[in-house]
């Protein structure tokens, strides 16, 4: 892991709020769902974002790609190769330099055969067949419409379209549910190959085993922000090597580790405490935790905690 690797994706202090009506009221309030999130992905690197589903992980992908719903307010900075990634720029890059693997087949055009969609503007038929073969999609699949695909097939079509070219950045939102073990491993190996050729991969998943398998670094998502980013090795080694008390609790709760839970629940959007989001469940809590907690560098990783050593 040399230092001179270029940062492909850099997200700094991303904040996303939804402007919503309260139940039965006529006034709109902002419901903050992502709070000052920072994450970066370098070339040739797979970064996994892990956390419970529904905690706002997908919104990170949607913010980067500018596909949030209309009532979302976005703050902070998103950069691609050092240049601000605005709405226009992302449309220019999407499909060639940036590939997105969405969670659902709804992102496909329902009125178009899947092979044509996968080939898109830049691809060709041979390459498409090659990729489909790799994902065990035979020729009959080429001329199917999206609604005719089963869950697993749809997932494989979506992955195929992302790896058609050699994109510089892949954003994968839960790429493997619905795939059998072999297909899931094939997908991960494919990501690894692309990463080894220089592609940056941001993989959003709730499956920690998956992250352990291929990721170079793991970002832990808690209550709408990233509390720690560290190398996968630190996570495998266990709590002593981690920085944030939540990451440590997270690893302790894994069935393959101690299977020991801490008490309490994650605070949810609209009800987030000021200061440290984990404070109410943290054994090291003190007055300092009530202030704004910045993300800081620590032992080759990053952490959002004032007490971490």
């Amino acid at each position: 892991m040399s230092e001179e690797k270029k940062t492909v994706l850099n997200v700094e202090d991303l904040t996303v709020a939804f402007n919503m009506y309260q139940k039965g009221a006529f006034k709109k309030t902002d419901l903050e769902v992502i709070h000052k999130l920072s994450i970066d992905v370098k070339e040739g690197e797979i970064v996994a974002v892990v956390g419970s589903s529904g905690s706002g992980k997908s919104l990170l992908a949607h913010s980067i790609l500018h596909i949030l719903p209309k009532n979302a307010k976005v703050g902070g900075k998103i950069e691609y190769c050092g240049k601000e990634l605005d709405d226009k720029y992302v449309k220019e890059l999407l499909g060639r330099d940036i590939a997105f693997i969405p969670q659902s087949v709804d992102y496909l055009d329902p009125l178009m055969h899947v092979d044509k969609q996968v080939i898109g503007v830049y691809g060709n038929k041979e390459r498409q067949r090659e990729v489909f073969d790799r994902y065990h999609l035979d020729e009959r699949v080429d001329t199917l419409y999206p609604f005719q695909l089963s869950g697993g097939m749809a997932r494989r079509v979506l992955i195929s379209s992302a790896v058609m070219e050699e994109p510089k950045l892949i954003i994968a939102d839960e790429p493997t549910p619905g795939l059998n073990v072999e297909m899931a491993m094939e997908t991960l190996n494919n990501f690894r190959e692309l990463a080894d050729k220089g592609t940056a991969v941001l993989m959003i998943t709730h499956d920690i085993d998956l992250a352990f398998e291929v990721a170079d670094r793991i970002a832990v998502f808690y209550a709408g922000t990233v509390v720690e980013i560290a190398s996968t090795l630190d996570f495998i080694m266990g709590r002593g090597f981690l920085r944030h008390p939540y990451s440590a609790a997270f690893v302790d709760a894994l069935p393959q580790k101690k299977f020991k839970p801490i008490e309490g629940t994650q605070p949810y959007a609209g009800n987030l405490p000021s200061g440290c989001l984990f404070a109410d469940r943290c054994p090291y809590r003190d007055d300092e935790c009530a202030g704004e907690i910045p993300m800081r560098d620590l032992r080759g990783g990053k952490v959002r905690c004032v007490h971490a050593t």
């Binding site: 904040t15 709020a17 009506y21 006529f26 006034k27 709109k28 309030t29 902002d30 903050e32 500018h66 307010k73 976005v74 703050g75 998103i78 601000e84 990634l85 605005d86 709405d87």
Partner: peptide, 20 residues
């Protein structure tokens, strides 16, 4: 990217928005 930052709750009695 729009640069509004977050959370300002309107204290106004009446707000003219699409819902009203």
């Amino acid at each position: 990217m729009s640069t509004h930052t977050h959370t300002h709750t309107d204290k106004k009695r009446f707000e003219f928005n699409r819902k009203t």
